[in-house]
């Protein structure tokens, strides 16, 4: 199986805090790979590293065999046209209509005529079920609709790789179902590679081909959904079942309760 992205021995720290310590993972071409983990371990950071917005301290990230951190800026911008990212907030441009938002990458990077752009935009909107909302402003959309519009924008240039940053966070069950269906359908129809960063266990288990679970600065488990479900790692099981206490402690590290509540008098 061919790997679209290969991350090897990656170390990254920010503000003196180590976020990843010597991580390696692979994203297979044409598959949906999920990266899961508790909040605050820098899953979004991983996507930014893949997109070349952040530079790792050590290690390498290869996109189609080419090292992203070592790329010159112009080349990086060329490579980015083959990938797109769906941001958590959607990140639609608030000063243009939904139509113009989706036309934006086409107008920036292609020399297509306005009538062709019009057709493409409506096709992409049709694919996410928002053709009727083309003339609305982003502020008039609900959260789920904004994310779908952003998805339409993300696929406007027919990229090879889509990175989803928490696509399910804060969505009602219906929107969530719609998004799950869309991600799956896009992956199958367009033959593209997807990376989904999330902590919504059930949704991921239905769409992912391969799963990495990150915690404590490293990969604590990986495999197909079946393998993950049957993992005997207590950390993985705690995460999957959502137990309050376990290897990831309920309490934030602190001094002992006796010391805190009985005071220094003791």
């Amino acid at each position: 199986m061919e790997n679209l992205i290969e991350i090897s021995n990656l170390t990254f720290s920010r503000g003196g805090r180590i976020i990843y310590d010597d991580i390696s993972l692979q994203i297979q071409k044409g598959k949906t790979t999920a990266i899961m983990g508790p909040s605050g371990i820098g899953k979004t950071t991983m996507l930014r590293l893949m997109g070349g917005q952040l530079i790792p301290d050590k290690g390498d990230i290869k996109f189609k065999g080419e090292s992203i951190p070592n790329m010159r800026r112009n080349r990086l911008f060329e490579v980015r046209r083959q990938m797109s990212m769906l941001f958590q907030s959607g990140a639609l441009f608030t000063d243009m209509s939904v139509f113009d938002n989706i036309a934006f990458p086409l107008r920036e990077h292609t020399k297509l005529s306005e009538s062709i752009i019009h057709t493409i935009v409506l096709l992409k909107l049709q694919a996410v079920g928002l053709r009727g909302a083309a003339d609305l402003m982003p502020a008039e959309l609900s959260g789920g609709m904004a994310r779908r519009a952003a998805l339409a924008r993300a696929i406007a240039l027919d990229p090879e790789l889509i990175m989803y940053d928490e696509p399910f966070a804060g969505q009602d069950p219906i929107s969530m179902g719609v998004l799950v269906k869309l991600i799956k359908a896009l992956n199958d129809a367009l033959q593209l590679t997807s990376v989904v960063v999330t902590h919504d266990v059930n949704e991921v288990l239905t769409i992912a081909d391969y799963i990495y679970i990150l915690a404590e600065k490293r990969v604590i488990g990986s495999g197909t959904p079946e393998q993950i479900k049957n993992s005997d790692s207590p950390l993985v099981q705690q995460f999957l079942q959502g137990k309050a206490d376990g290897p990831v402690p309920f309490h934030y590290p602190a001094n002992s309760t006796a010391q805190a509540f009985l005071g220094s008098a003791s």
Binding site: G51, S84, M85, F87, S89, A91, T94, H109
Partner: peptide, 18 residues
Amino acid sequence: GLMKATEQLSSLEMMAVD
């Protein structure tokens, strides 16, 4: 600042627009 907070700047960058 709000464009930055709502990831619009990041998203421009990911769309290969400076």
